[in-house]
Design a protein around this nucleic acid. Sequence first.
RNA 1: CGGGCCGUAGCGCAGCUUGGUAGCGCGACUGGUUUGGGACCAGUAGGUCGGAGGUUCGAAUCCUCUCGGCCCGACCA
Length: 574
Amino acid sequence: MRLSQILIQTLREDPADAEIPSHRLLARAGFIVKTAAGVYTYSPLMWRVIKKFAQIVREELDREGANEVMLPIIQPKELWQASGRWDRYVADGIMFTLKDRKGSEMCLGPTHEEVMTDFVSSQVNSYKQLPVNCYQIQDKFRDEIRPRFGLMRGREFIMMDAYSFDADQAGLDEAYQKMRNAYCRIFDRCGVDYTVVQADSGAIGGAGSEEFMVIADAGEDAILFCRESGYAANVEKATSRLPDAPPGGEPKPMEKLATPDVKTVAQLEAFFPDWPAGRMAKTVLYKATWADEEKLVAVMQRGDLEINEVKLVNALDALAVDLASDEDIVKATGAEVGFAGPVDLPDDVVLLADESLRDRTNLLCGCNETGYHCLNVNLGRDARMPEFRDLRLAKAGEGCPISGKPLEEARGIEVGHIFKLGTKYSAAMGATFMAQNGKPTPFAMGCYGIGVSRTPASAVEQHHDDKGIVWPVPIAPFECVVAFLDKKRGEQIELAEKIYAQLGEAGVEVCLDDRAMSPGAKFKDHELIGLPVQVFVGRKASEGRVELLVRKGLAKVECGVDEVVGKVLAALGR
RNA sequence: CGGGCCGUAGCGCAGCUUGGUAGCGCGACUGGUUUGGGACCAGUAGGUCGGAGGUUCGAAUCCUCUCGGCCCGACCA
């Protein structure tokens, strides 16, 4: 391929709207061009990258017996109503909805559980046809509340989504493990540094899930991990050993004391020097939303710990929780913000508490009276006994739940997510097969996603320097470029053409930079574009000598024409 | 959806406070000279200043509304 024939337009300056390295470099090197907020055009070079990554995905999934299909982008409302997700996705605002000529409501697919379940259900009647695993690589549409970071969080993006269908849980477990293995091979092959972490299932639902995280500062997720035990989890899901707190001792009589303007744990610690935060219980009011109602929920947490809202949503089986407004708090508790507590809490407010408060005695809490707190509160005696759940936000430095060693924290970009859905969708949609026992049985499903446009962006996030992109070989748009430097020197052009042909014959994915640019411009361009190996044919062409540059590290060596092919292959690790 | 900010040539920006002929750099095009780190010289093209309304003799500039975009937060496969 000749670069003179490929549409390439690099920019001299950084685009104004790019913040993180991958967005900045992909835009500046001309790989992506913004069409609208969160909507990008992939230029020829980017499309080569996407296709190469997608090919790796295909090979590894096919090896596990998955079938590639293509599902429709436009989906009818009815399917989403059948699974019960239409209202939630519309309410969350991420669904692109539209109406056809007749007024029927449709949506642009944000994900394809419904369509795939419907499809497989229509094709599979008997357990004898199971297991089945189908996937597609296709655009997804989500009207993100805040698209950002280029390809990292777009509104239209490319995703591989696979769905497994099994007769029972054992089959699902096996399908899940096969996909997990395939995912590891995929991310190993494409040269990114990743970690598999335990994850919350979120809007997709289901019993268990794991995320594949590319470690990078720009990551939108925080993960906690332990080198000792291998434990790793998204902070939304993570647990840790409960940090110690001073014991409360034998129950004492409750006292109510005036605490004017003392509203936060920090202020309470200052006001009561003898009471560490670990002996306090804070009470936070949330507005929880379900499909058919909203309620105020009081959540108690030990004073030195924080509440994990994802765990709270799960504990309540709610769609969402938001901190209650000041007005709602006053209305519900009768006290100003900062004085809520379990003591004299109105009965209509649900009361939950974190496990860290179980069996704790003589707590310091609010009592729903402005300007007062209570000392020596004992739950069940001085206040309702709350329902105890794990609602604690785990933090770096706390003990690993397995090894007890301090957890470390890192940022991660979610490039893959695998779920055991179980029968959530199949049961809701009546997707059944005839089981061996002669009874209609819902499929045990798994679903598996890979961000096909996001993964290359995350690779750039990990592999770049101050000059530009440093593509990992397996997903680079080309493995090697051969460039002559002076278009007026026939011997340079001739030699470049010869080397280009030889590399092609040697199986190297090579391009020829035959553009009429000055040498400096070519050097800069290739540093920016980031092809792994670069061969420059310059002023020593007449002596049969050229320069070979390895983009990673920018090491440049001179060599003779006869050695070039061998050296390029070696640089590519072959 | 809250808070902050920005829309002026393909890209990056100045001009706006204090209203008076729309500018700079890069890029593009033409010609010439160049050819090892985004070359140089000369010339050319390209903007209803996001849109609508208003104030004014006169609006990129002031006012109102609106659309689009960016950042922080909330939220999110």
